[in-house]
Design a protein around this nucleic acid. Structure first.
Length: 818
RNA sequence: GCUCGAGUGGUGGAACAGGCAGACACAACGGACUUAAAAUCCGUCGGACUAACCCUCCGUGCCGGUUCGAGUCCGGCCUCGAGCACCA
């Protein structure tokens, strides 16, 4: 049967019946955990991106399987989240219903892809059996002090009507709907990811991850080394309590240049220190700051503003009084929320001091020849700094802090840009937060034996800023587990990123109803050996999942440090116009159409061949036709060879046979290497070369059919990861035993790769003049002689002296003449 | 502004670790088969020079350098993309 949709169906059925891809739980010495980022069932159908991600990773997994690995390759659905809820608001269809329906469709399509997924290990995050354990993890984090509630200015998306994590705010706008994010003071749940900031950084270098992704995480964590320095607030009469505050600085060397200090307008000390006569001005300023949008506040081009509080701080070394200002260029959430201002050596402070007429004192001189016009922000030599005059910036940073620390006024300090992860959401479609609020007992975690806290079905989920669950009487009212008095459940749900931060731990033990996962078992299957998914998750999912892994390890539930040893991001497939695919542009590619016309294998193989995997690129209908033709070419030559069986076959291993055999083994070598590295386009190219070589050999009259058949069988095996249905069909038609996927992956023969003669390039002074054949085993001297004696060399050697001869074995000879 | 990536034929894209640039395809063109077309099979295919072939010269964003030899390494630009961005 020539390749078609029918062939796909035939083999999908057979694979399922024979349980070909079931994971062997007993053979763990060669286990390989291959994972794609699971899909979000928002749209009803798989798009090209899914195929690109899943189909090709499956090809990789198939090769690994044939190489003898026991591949664990599960699939599941990241099923909670806003799109389903928004869809429900629009259509009235309950998120649970639409989600389950989408999952059903997507699952069917995933099966049509013909992938090796073992569906026995499926995970659906919106199922109570799953989120029970999401809640359980929440409770463990809570017990460990890694989940806590605090009142803080948080990001609020007015369109999604919920708070967002920092990672979900892009350029001051909601990552999902692009509305401008506003700031609100709210009490919310946070996960203390900052506790792991240093380890999250330290483990990055050893990971086999794209450098870019590591860079994004490094930036996001934002480690900064500096010092924390204590300032006292001046209080004239000394009767009242002493107030101090700390500033964080990376430039302790400029300490003597401090002419004022600045607090963030939100800083808690502001009310305490502001003098009565400045109270109105300060209040007015804070009101203005509140009105400024987050985007404007973050703009570096905006003119700086601020007001004097009337209070003074005492410089820790000089004892002089410096003014305390508040200004919104100081951020409440970073460092200590206060800075020491050194206008001479900081552009921001310089701009501010100039505007408000504050003193500017130079304390750093440029090294010789350096233009040190103020503001001079580079390192240099200290001046106006008492005993530190003449010391370099680098040394002074340590020495000044040393002096401060002896007086208990300062210390070296590392600060991170990373903030704690805000996890509560004022929305319906998520895992309920498993705590109870009791008037008497306060926050009480739901006892583990009462999990899951089930998400009620009948809820009015129109978002209005208040959590929909708060309005669901039957849900919200409960009894306090401690005092048995009336209490209320937490009405917020967890960010969906919480669900996806541990799904890879659940897969291997998805049916466990006693625990989230069995530690002993999970330690055998994890970590994930190969993880493949989009680059957009670099600072979110991938960071959160690492944090969860480390936290669970420290609680004794795991024994490994990192969840994903090796990571690859697939590129993006664009529309044929080179633009991002979108319905509004009308350039979307619907996989189903192509599958029906060409079959799953052709579609998958085009995705493999047409793009550099990590780059992606524009879709082309012509490209897919080329693959269809390629499949046809293979089909025809196999049919022909089968038809010729029984005819006399030469046993000859002449030059043509050797050439075919060379290409065959060279193909084995390259396809193995390329596929291993996700370079599918070149792997397919090598297979095309092999087919071309077979066709060339086929033109001969006196053929060695045995060699041809062996070569074809190798071809089928090498092609099978990319065209599983087609090759299975061809394999069967050649009379071979089911299944091709139980065959060993071919191994190349080194001897076949050694040719008798090799063509090398001959250069004179680096310019290629001609090419010539030399015996492969000849040494440098022999090669040199062959080339020198070549009549074509004469014109380049005539009247010249040979200065040098460079021989690169098997490639070229370069003769330098003068 | 800072920090990374990337720029290769008409197109998608190759090129191990500094060693024959353009693999493999697409498109285009030519030939075979065919009454014809499609399909298929074979071939040509960076540019300039040339009637054509050979030869020669130019050619991996631009300018310069290192080297026997540079798409690849170094310095300086240009363009595009990404990340961070008042982070003290």
């Amino acid at each position: 049967m020539s390749y078609s949709r029918e062939v796909d169906k035939k083999w999908q059925k057979k694979w399922e019946e024979s349980k070909l891809y079931k994971f062997d739980r007993d053979k763990l010495d060669k286990k390989l955990y291959c994972l794609e980022m699971f899909s979000y069932p928002s749209g009803a159908k798989l798009h090209v991106g899914h195929w690109y991600n899943f189909g090709l990773t499956d090809s990789w997994a198939r090769m690994k399987r044939m190489q003898g690995y026991n591949v664990f390759h599960p699939q599941g659905f990241d099923a909670f989240g806003l799109p389903a809820e928004n869809y429900a608001i629009k259509t009235g269809i309950h998120p649970m219903d639409s989600t389950m329906k989408n999952i059903e469709t997507m699952k069917r399509q995933l099966k049509e892809m013909g992938a090796t997924f073992d569906w026995d290990y499926e995970v659906i995050t919106c199922a109570p059996e799953y989120y029970k354990w999401t809640q359980w993890i929440f409770l463990q984090l809570y017990k460990k002090g890694l989940a806590y509630r605090k009142n803080a200015p948080v990001n609020w998306c007015p369109s999604c009507k919920t708070v967002l994590a920092n990672e979900q705010v892009v350029d001051g706008a909601c990552e999902r709907c692009h509305s401008e994010v506003t700031r609100k003071n709210l009490t919310q749940w946070f996960f203390k990811i900052t506790e792991y900031a240093q380890e999250l950084l330290d483990c990055l270098p050893a990971l086999d991850w794209p450098e870019k992704t590591k860079k994004i995480q490094t930036n996001w964590i934002g480690r900064s080394e500096g010092a924390q320095i204590e300032f006292k607030v001046e209080n004239g009469d000394k009767s009242s309590e002493e107030i101090t505050f700390n500033v964080f600085t990376t430039r302790a060397d400029t300490l003597y240049g401090v002419t004022y200090v600045v607090l963030a307008p939100e800083h808690e000390l502001v009310d305490k220190i502001t003098t009565p006569e400045y109270k109105d001005a300060v209040e007015e300023y804070r009101r203005q700051v509140n009105k400024v949008s987050e985007i404007d506040r973050l703009s570096t081009t905006r003119e700086k503003t601020g007001v004097f509080t009337g209070a003074y701080a005492i410089h820790p070394l000089t004892g002089e009084n410096v003014q305390i200002w508040i200004a919104d260029y100081v951020l409440a959430g970073y460092g200590t929320g206060c800075v020491m201002a050194v206008p001479a050596h900081d552009e921001r402070d310089y701009e501010f001091a100039t505007k408000y007429g504050l003193d500017i004192i130079r304390v750093i001189k440029g090294k010789e020849g350096v233009d040190d016009t103020l503001p001079f922000v580079e390192d240099g030599i200290l001046t106006n700094s008492q005993e530190f005059d003449g010391v370099s910036s680098e040394d002074a940073r340590l020495k000044i802090v040393d002096k401060l620390s002896k007086q208990g006024k300062g210390e070296l300090k590392v600060t991170y840009r990373l903030r704690d992860w805000l996890v509560s959401r004022q929305r319906y479609w998520g895992a309920p937060i498993p705590v109870v609020h009791c008037e008497k007992c306060g926050i009480v975690p739901v006892p583990e034996d009462q999990l899951p806290v089930e998400l009620p079905y009948d809820v009015v989920f129109t978002p209005d800023g208040e959590s929909p669950l708060a309005k669901c009487e039957s849900f919200i009212n409960t009894v306090c587990p401690t005092c048995k008095g009336p209490a209320k459940r937490d009405s917020d749900t967890l960010d969906t990123f919480v669900c996806s931060s541990w799904y890879f731990l659940r897969y291997p033990d998805n049916k466990n109803d006693k625990e989230a996962f069995n530690t002993e078992w999970i330690n055998k299957i994890l970590p994930v050996d190969k993880y493949v998914g989009g680059a957009e998750h670099a600072a979110m999912h991938l960071l959160y999942a690492r944090f969860f892994t480390k936290a669970l390890r420290d609680m004794g539930y795991l024994n490994f440090d990192e969840p994903f040893l090796s990571l690859i991001h697939q590129g993006t497939i664009l529309g044929s116009d080179g633009q991002k695919m979108s319905k509004s542009r009308g350039n979307t590619v619907t996989p189903d159409e192509y599958i029906n016309k060409y079959g799953s294998d052709v579609f998958r193989m085009y995705l493999a061949f047409g793009f550099a995997y990590i780059e992606g690129g524009p879709w082309s209908d012509d490209g897919i036709k080329a693959i269809d033709r390629f499949i046809g070419r293979i089909n025809r030559v196999i049919e022909e060879v089968i038809a010729e069986r029984g005819k006399s076959s030469s046993k000859n291993m002449g030059a043509d046979e050797k050439e075919l055999n060379f290409v065959r083994h060279n193909t084995i070598k390259s396809v193995t290497q390329d596929t291993d590295q996700f370079q599918f386009n070149t792997a397919i190219a090598r297979l095309m070369e092999l087919v071309n070589a077979i066709y060339k050999y086929d033109m001969k009259t006196d053929k060695n059919y045995d060699l041809m058949e062996e070569t074809l069988k190798d071809l089928l095996k090498l092609l099978s990861p990319f065209a599983p249905h087609f090759t299975e069909e061809m394999w069967e038609s050649m009379g071979e035993k089911y299944s091709i996927f139980n065959q060993n992956w071919p191994v190349y023969d080194e001897k076949a790769l050694v040719k008798d003669e090799v063509e090398i390039a001959v250069q004179f002074n680096g310019q290629i003049r001609f090419r010539t054949n030399v015996p492969t085993d000849s040494d440098n001297k022999e090669i040199e002689d062959i080339v020198k004696n070549d009549p074509r060399s004469a014109q380049y050697l005539e009247g010249k002296n040979i200065v040098k001869v460079i021989v690169v074995k098997g490639r070229l000879v370069n003769i330098v003449v003068k």
